[in-house]
Design a protein around this nucleic acid. Sequence first.
DNA 1: AAGAATACCAACCGCATTCAA
DNA 2: CTTGAATGCGGTTGGTATTCT
Length: 270
Amino acid sequence: MVRAPCCEKMGLKKGPWTSEEDQILINYIQQYGHGNWRAPPKQAGLLRCGKSCRLRWINYLRPDIKRGNFSREEEDAIINLHEILGNRWSAIAAKLPGRTDNEIKNVWHTHLKKRLKQHEATPVATKRRSKHYQEAKSELEPMDFPSHENSGSHEHRPVSPQECSSDMSTVTIGDDNNDNDTCPKAESPVNFPEVDEDFWSEVLSTESSGVVNDDFSAVGGGDPPLDQVPFSPLMTMEPVHGYGSNMHDSMDFWFNVFTRAGEIPELPDF
DNA sequence: AAGAATACCAACCGCATTCAA
DNA sequence: CTTGAATGCGGTTGGTATTCT
């Protein structure tokens, strides 16, 4: 609707932040917090727009930011979460403590997309998933899908809200006015899968047998050897909710539920 | 050694949403 | 209810570093 004023028009600085600017912003936020992003530039004397300050803080200066390379577990988690959530980088970031949406987005575009293309992502899991998906796909193909009646050429898959519509809250079942819409629809407002915030710490601490602690730092420094981490955290779900032995089984299950029921149910905490 | 190509990532842009007046 | 400011988010860009030829 209305855009925030552009930095250039306001005579504000753009481009890379200097260490001085960083320090000013850090000092300001430590002192006053970050309730209002318009305030720091004015009150701290920064020649930056609030938007830029917010971005700098969130993506770089926040004390809980974890720098450095992504571990294999994190990469697998991103792949799995992306499968569920689509390009909702902030939602994915919320499940990876210390990582930002921007960082995850960058990793996705620079590493993971390629890795998936080459079928190198978590070899065991990838093979299992592709098998699952092939089976599920061939099994589901002949079936009638309430919301896909006129979309025979579309691949059946979970659809992210972005792919669906910009307005998730207004989707309805069987909207005949939009034959091209490939999204599952529901009469009631959609509760998109919300993963329990405690998931990571729980799973990482219990599932990985102490190899990785709850902030992904390997005990003893560095990432755990891959041979000690046969599956990503999301792939060892059986004790959690009992369907199948890994995340992909679970995803297949909910994928089937989505497509058969024609609506998005409330998901359990993965 | 030098230039080209590629990879990486911080930061920007613009749209959507939320909320207060 | 409408309007506009503030914020959040995802897509994209551009500068720098690294690798390749």
